[in-house]
């Protein structure tokens, strides 16, 4: 069944070329000496240097990072709780509304989420800044966390928790000692997803940020609206590199773990 026909080879090659060539070009042109982004003027790293001098970008990056860490951490706690409710709580009044509120933000256009939160903050008289962005990001990313965690909880063997109770754990202990360590990979994945979503978000942050706090995507957006700039290329390259290194390392580690686990299982099976 495994025969890679020429058709498959061509479609995979073209497909991945389509996905990656734009980013490769972006990276290459970040080392362009010329200010004109489309003309190659020789190799240079001067745009990286200029980026490092740009206080406004550095400030925005700091705000973005702060918002991402705080909002994804709160979102992970809330999202995990929500996942436990979705999978375990059974029936309670308002369950429909609850699961609706978990799933709706996933498909809600960002412009609407942003607009509605802004109107709320104005209504409450809340000054727009880091706090309002954190509240907004927590709200939509907790829904992503709860989807990731609940998909793990669905396959969780609840007899493990019962076994913990049977062996003398209180309910809280059973969760802390058994359930949480086992679902930890999903919780971490949820945190990472929330973190990236927050780093990435332009639209909701544009609505909920104020003059006191600007995030990196807002800065990038207002810069690129005026056209392509080599400084943004340099910034993009840095961000792409961080993500690529992270994702590749994570997948290598998890692949190696998987291979090891498989080998050990086979060894155990043979020894039986």
């Amino acid at each position: 069944m495994i025969r890679l026909s020429w058709f498959n080879v061509v479609s995979l090659t073209l497909g991945f070329a389509f996905l990656y060539i734009p980013m490769v070009i972006l990276v290459i042109y970040s080392f362009n000496k010329s200010k004109l982004v489309t003309v190659w003027g020789g190799f240079s790293t001067k745009w990286y240097g200029e980026l490092m001098q740009n206080e406004a970008f550095l400030d925005a990056a700091w705000v973005t990072l702060k918002v991402a860490v705080i909002s994804s951490s709160i979102a992970t706690v809330l999202g995990t709780m929500a996942a436990l409710v979705l999978v375990r709580a059974g029936r309670f009044s308002g369950r429909m509304l609850f699961s609706g509120m978990i799933y709706a933000p996933l498909v809600m256009p960002e412009v609407i989420t942003g607009l509605s939160l802004l109107l709320l903050f104005i209504g409450l008289g809340l000054d727009r800044g880091v706090l309002t962005i954190v509240l907004a990001h927590t709200t939509f990313s907790m829904c992503y966390v709860s989807v990731v965690v609940s998909s793990r909880l669905v396959t969780f063997d609840w007899s493990l928790e019962e076994a913990a109770l049977d062996l003398g754990c209180s309910k809280t202990e059973a969760f802390r000692l058994v359930t949480l360590p086992i679902i930890a990979p999903a919780v971490i994945a949820g945190w990472l997803l929330a973190f990236t979503l927050s780093l990435d978000d332009l639209v909701i942050a544009s609505f909920t940020s104020g003059p006191s706090a600007t995030t990196l995507p807002i800065k990038i957006f207002s810069a690129v609206r005026l056209g392509v700039s080599p400084e943004i290329n340099a910034l993009s390259t840095i961000m792409i590199t961080i993500v690529a290194v992270g994702v590749i390392t994570a997948s290598l580690v998890s692949k190696r773990q998987l291979v090891r686990q498989k080998r050990e299982e086979q060894a155990a099976f043979r020894a039986q």
Binding site: P22, M23, P217, V224, A244
Partner: peptide, 19 residues
């Protein structure tokens, strides 16, 4: 390789096409 672009900034991926 399919998921990797998903983790990179949406804004940057759109921006890449401008040039």
């Amino acid at each position: 390789l399919i998921i990797l672009p998903f983790w990179t900034s949406f804004l940057i991926r759109v921006y890449a096409w401008m040039g």
